[in-house]
Design a protein around this nucleic acid. Structure first.
Lengths: 110, 110
DNA sequence: TAGAAACTAAAGTATTCGCTTAAGTATTGT
DNA sequence: ACAATACTTAAGCGAATACTTTAGTTTCTA
């Protein structure tokens, strides 16, 4: 059974962890190696690798290995999809509030 | 130890589950009781309650019990904060691409 | 006032998550 | 060739998740 929104599960799940958001933050500045990403995190290298695996599975990050170093970079498409899911809901919510306010205005003289 | 971004952990974590996103989707249309939220979900009522607890803990949803029914509604503030976290990163990424393109333009005549 | 309705609390379970340490495998510099 | 560098794999472990069933409590309604 396939769900169309399954990629949003992975994206939001990936963003739910502060270490992974820190990695995204770093990669926003530009590509980085695994060790560069690991340096500021109080964690073993395999721990960082596992976070990277989650980020890659979600499509937020892509990487390529050249020689002995793997270079990671942001793939903004999924970031945009997650943003849009929220933006659409917020827009719907605001539109509903508008209709509600309009209704109250129209019926306030009774 | 308190982290300023801890509420983002909870917000993204809450949004990472399809049942919880379905609840948010429903509440965007307007307030609903627990049973109304549970009806479309293939899950026991306590299961739905647990999802609601996660949503309330994240601040995405608030609820109030009147008589024997609890009415839930969306609280859009946290939704907006999550959206903004992503929007800021995407903006930074695009700004970086712009600078990169500009640099390449300025140095292309060699 | 008895019973149905709407939720709530508690406990159990299988799976997943976020780490760890230990032991690899390639690549690269001397 | 040898050692250092940069990652990778595997296994293990405690805590958190996502449910379940069972057994309540409170509040309405006939």
């Amino acid at each position: 059974m396939f769900r169309a929104e399954a990629h949003l599960d992975l994206a939001f799940q990936a963003l739910a962890d502060p270490s992974r958001r820190a990695i995204v933050d770093r990669l926003i500045q530009g590509p980085a190696s695994v060790s560069e990403l690991a340096a500021p995190l109080a964690m073993s290298l395999p721990g960082v690798m596992q976070h990277l695996a989650v980020l890659e599975a979600s499509g937020l990050v892509v990487s390529e290995k050249i020689g002995r170093t793997r270079t990671c970079r942001i793939e903004p498409k999924v970031l945009t999809q997650a943003e849009q899911w929220i933006a659409e809901r917020r827009a719907l919510w605001e539109r509903r509030l508008d209709r509600l306010g309009q209704f109250l205005d129209e019926t306030k003289d009774d």
